[in-house]
């Protein structure tokens, strides 16, 4: 299992998370609760695949090995142990409450992270972050509104939201953990310090959950699993088996 330099790993974390989140949204095709949501989910998914491609292209240039790594090989030819996406986004869709809870946690994380990254010294990161942030601002508004509607909707929707939060909360530890690699990146001047990210993420969750009449659980106690080292849940493998099927089955093909 290859481990790249810290900046490349960081780019993969961003790109992989966006792609896997989008892949889960694709699974909703033709199954959304309303036509407007078919469009909404596809819209968010399209933005995220676009973002993934931008991060991958930069990562691929940095990897620059003799195997012609490009954005597509990063997306479609790596095994699960090499994927750096947040554990949160690889979790199955469940019902609309689970899907929207995952989306909201991820959007809030992206929003604050990208807001910080658009000030990065690395101009490439700053540019991708600034472009993505415009999209993610809308994503976060949409998912916050849904969390509020469903949390403070009917008795049933409230219960479903509580169950959804309970199901995925433990994977949010990655959104608030301090990390040496990112600290090193900020010390070397590539990216701004991300020390405020956990606090900002939690503040957004608190604010939206208050409106949604939902309780914010205690800090999760999760160990062993970590996307940074490719220690994923079992869900990622089957997701990749589906997503990567054509590239794996026909390695010499051109699409």
């Amino acid at each position: 299992m290859t481990k790249y330099d810290e900046l490349t790993e960081f780019l993969l974390r961003l790109g992989d998370s966006a792609l896997i989140q989008a892949q889960r949204l694709c699974e909703w095709t033709g199954r959304a609760p309303a036509l407007e949501e078919e469009m909404g989910m596809m819209n968010v998914g399209l933005d995220l695949v676009g973002q993934a491609r931008n991060w991958y292209e930069y990562a691929a240039e940095r990897i620059n090995d003799d195997t012609d790594t490009d954005a597509d090989t990063l997306a479609f030819r790596r095994d699960e142990r090499a994927f750096r996406n947040l554990l949160l986004v690889e979790q199955p869709n469940g019902d609309f409450a689970v899907t929207m809870t995952k989306q909201f946690f991820y959007d809030a994380w992206q929003f604050h992270l990208l807001t910080m990254l658009k000030g990065a010294n690395d101009e490439r990161i700053a540019a991708i972050a600034a472009k993505s942030l415009k999209e993610v601002t809308y994503h976060l508004r949409r998912s916050s509104q849904w969390v509020e509607r469903l949390g403070d909707g009917t008795e049933e929707s409230h219960q479903r939201m509580e169950k959804a939060v309970d199901a995925v909360w433990r994977f949010t530890f990655e959104l608030v953990e301090k990390n040496d690699a990112e600290l090193a990146l900020s010390e070397s001047g590539n990216i701004p310090a991300l020390t405020e990210l956990p606090g900002k993420w939690l503040a957004t969750v608190n604010e939206v959950f208050a409106k949604a009449t939902l309780t914010v659980p205690d800090a999760p106690n999760t160990f062993y699993l970590s996307a940074r080292t490719g220690m994923h849940s079992e869900h990622l493998g089957t997701l990749l088996a589906e997503m990567q099927f054509l590239q794996r089955a026909y390695p010499d093909a051109s699409w």
Partner: peptide, 10 residues
């Protein structure tokens, strides 16, 4: 059918 509760909540 599966989305009925979502629309009702909205």
């Amino acid at each position: 059918q599966d989305g009925a509760w979502v629309r009702e909540a909205a």
